[in-house]
Design a protein around this nucleic acid. Structure first.
Lengths: 137, 137
DNA sequence: ATTAATTCTATAAAACTAGTAGAGTTTAAA
DNA sequence: TTTAAACTCTACTAGTTTTATAGAATTAAT
């Protein structure tokens, strides 16, 4: 399941993607339009900025705008940024790999093989969903 | 990501699936073989019993055994029993449907459509992984 | 009776989540 | 140069969930 943070991030990105290219959106504007607590959204937008998905302009008349193309922001990207690994266990993860403490021999683990298959399929599906594809629907 | 409970449940089921059909496994035996805290495993096995995946025999020489065929226990089943919805948001879930409190018009939600697609693909993949398929690898 | 097992309920510590608070910084414009 | 409006940053908190642990009750075989 997605955290609220990830869900709010996606809603915010969808909002930004629907504005004109040159438009700069204030936090409060996004928060109101997408029903997101403003102070919470502030943190989320900063995370999205640190992830180089959005850019910001500070000061009066400042705000946020899409930095990456909406075709290049995938569900997988946002999941990883806010909720971490796509895989069901760290030992089956590409970007968040970690060994299981209770694992004797990883290469012999029956579970891991299946979970890697799942990760491959889920990742492919999640990379197929972009902000652009969501807006078009 | 899977909870430890779900992971332990899968490891326990894999252990049971590798025993002879008539064999009854004690909790401590499974716990030792699969490196699972015994008292924690007790709860998990009870959950699996209530979910009709395993059966039990009480008293001396009692223990647990597979109730369902290992071909009929899927990763999706275990995920749902211990970790709930397969979908990334409750509004995109089949078995754990719930409306988003911040949603104005669900049929208009851009996010939901994409998440339903993901759920369909993930579910199909997870239903393809059975205890039997994991043991065979 | 005794032993060995499951079953049940309660508890507790740690981690995580969701959200809030408030001070600081930056920028545009009057 | 002052003011207003915005982003930026750090800390905090309340609540929930997770991961167990403890111990008593029940069941069944010998």
């Amino acid at each position: 399941m997605l955290s609220h943070k990830a869900k709010y991030a996606l809603k915010a990105l969808l909002y930004l993607a629907q504005q004109e290219e040159t438009h700069i959106s204030r936090t409060i504007e996004i928060a109101d339009a997408a029903s997101i607590p403003k102070k919470f959204l502030e943190q989320i937008l900063l995370d999205l900025k640190r992830g180089h998905f959005v850019g910001s302009k500070q000061g009066k008349f400042g705000g946020y705008y899409l930095l990456k193309s909406k075709n290049d922001i995938t569900l997988a990207d946002i999941h990883r940024l806010f909720d971490g690994a796509i895989a069901l266990l760290p030992c089956a993860s590409l970007n968040f790999y970690e060994r299981c403490s209770d694992c004797v021999d990883e290469s012999e683990c029956l579970l891991r093989h299946g979970l890697i298959t799942i990760r491959e399929e889920t990742l492919k599906a999640m990379q197929g969903i972009t902000i652009a594809s969501l807006v078009k629907k």
